[in-house]
């Protein structure tokens, strides 16, 4: 081992290298690395936020869905109720109508029966009169016996 001025030269060189490294190499690289770290951290945080947002949105969606389902059910129930009401109402109206028609028909029938009866009565009184004429073989005063005949007709 023989020492010479190389020792000093190396020390000086070393100091220059360290100075250069400290000034021009380390700070920009470190800054870039730290910036990237910050960016990655930020990105991860953003991803987490996004995940949370998504979860919230999903929760909201399911909530809305439930609500909508409930509303739909309500609407359906209401509609069914309304339909029942309408049907009931229609039934009532139909029944009323039917009653009316039935009543009218009954009245009509009654009227016809009455008129038929009236006609029959008249015919029967005619026949009875003719029969009685033939039986008695003499003129029967229709006017004189009208009361008897009417009574007879009423009995038929």
């Amino acid at each position: 081992m023989n020492f010479n001025a190389t020792l000093i030269g190396q020390t000086v060189t070393f100091i220059v290298f360290v100075w250069f490294c400290m000034k021009y190499v380390w700070p920009p690289l470190m800054a870039a690395l730290e910036e990237r770290n910050a960016r990655i951290t930020e990105g991860l945080a953003a991803a987490e936020r996004g995940q949370k947002d998504l979860e919230q949105a999903q929760a909201k969606v399911s909530e809305n869905l439930d609500e909508a389902k409930q509303q739909a059910q309500e609407i359906i129930n209401q509609a069914q109720k309304r339909a029942n009401e309408i049907v009931d109402g229609a039934k009532d109206i139909a029944r009323e109508e039917a009653d009316k028609i039935k009543n009218a028909a009954t009245a009509d029938i009654d009227q016809q029966v009455n008129s038929a009866r009236e006609q029959l009565r008249k015919e029967v009184s005619g026949i009875a009169l003719a029969g009685a004429e033939q039986i008695l073989k003499r003129e029967v005063n229709a006017d004189a016996h009208a009361a008897v005949l009417d009574e007879l007709v009423a009995q038929i």
């Binding site: 250069f20 021009y24 190499v25 380390w26 920009p28 690289l29 870039a32 960016r39």
Partner: peptide
């Protein structure tokens, strides 16, 4: 120093 300086110049995020 040359290699590292080159890397330092190119360093980005």
């Amino acid at each position: 120093l040359w290699i590292f300086r080159k890397a330092a110049k190119k360093a980005s995020t």
